[in-house]
C-alpha cells in the first residue's frame, strides 16, 4: 500500500513538474530580435540562415524594415505574416504549429513520454522489494550493539 502511494506521489510530481516546465516558452529579449530570429534571410535560403545571423545587405535591409514596422506599431505576428505572404512558409525558421508541421513540435515530447513509460514499466519489473516480515524487521536492542557499532566505525575509517 505504501508502495502504491509512493508510486502515485512520484508520478504526480513528475507530471506536474513537466507540465510546469513545458508551459513556459522562452521569451527572447526584444521583439526585434525575436522577429529576426523567426525569419530566414531570403538571400540565404541555401544555408537557411536567419535574418539575425546573416550579415549581407538583404538581411540588413530586412532588419531595417522590421525596425520601421515596429516603430509604426505593428505587432510581431503581423510583421511575420507580411513576410510569409510575400515569400511563403519557407521563410520561417521554424515550422508553424499547425497541420503536418505540428508533428515537428509534438514528436520530441511524445518520445520522452514514451521513454518515461518504458522506464516506468521496466522499473515495475525490476523492483523487488525484499519482503521483510515485521517481526523480523524489529530487532530488539542487544548487548553487543555498542560493540558492533564501534566495529563498523573502525572498519569504516579504513576507507576514509
Amino acid at each position: 500500500m505504501v508502495r502504491g502511494l509512493v508510486r502515485k506521489i512520484s508520478l504526480t510530481w513528475i507530471l506536474l513538474g513537466s507540465f510546469l516546465l513545458l508551459n513556459i516558452s522562452p521569451a527572447l529579449a526584444s521583439t526585434q530580435s525575436d522577429i529576426e530570429n523567426s525569419l530566414i534571410c531570403p538571400a540565404c535560403f541555401a544555408e537557411s540562415m536567419s535574418v539575425a545571423a546573416c550579415q549581407d545587405s538583404t538581411a540588413q535591409q530586412i532588419k531595417e524594415e522590421i525596425r520601421q514596422k515596429l516603430a509604426l506599431g505593428q505587432t510581431k505576428v503581423e510583421i511575420i505574416k507580411t513576410y510569409v505572404d510575400q515569400y511563403g512558409e519557407g521563410i520561417l525558421t521554424s515550422p508553424p504549429k499547425k497541420g503536418f508541421n505540428l508533428m515537428a513540435w509534438v514528436t520530441p515530447f511524445l518520445g520522452i513520454m514514451m521513454g518515461g513509460t518504458l522506464i516506468y514499466l521496466a522499473l515495475s519489473r525490476w523492483v523487488k522489494v525484499p519482503s521483510v516480515k515485521k517481526s523480523q524487521a524489529k530487532t530488539k536492542p542487544g548487548a553487543l550493539d555498542d560493540y558492533y557499532e564501534a566495529r563498523v566505525e573502525e572498519e569504516f575509517k579504513k576507507y576514509l
Binding site: 530570429n37 539575425a52 519557407g90 521554424s94 508541421n101 513540435w105 515530447f109
Partner: peptide, 27 residues
C-alpha cells in the same frame, strides 16, 4: 521528413530548438 511526406521543405531553426530544449534542459 516534411519534404518526403508533404513535399514542402520547411526550415527548422533557432525558435524550434530553443523552445523544445529549454524545458528539457531545465529539467
Amino acid at each position: 521528413v516534411s519534404e518526403a511526406v508533404v513535399g514542402q521543405k520547411i526550415a527548422v531553426g533557432i525558435p524550434f530548438f530553443n523552445q523544445v530544449n529549454a524545458p528539457i534542459g531545465l529539467a
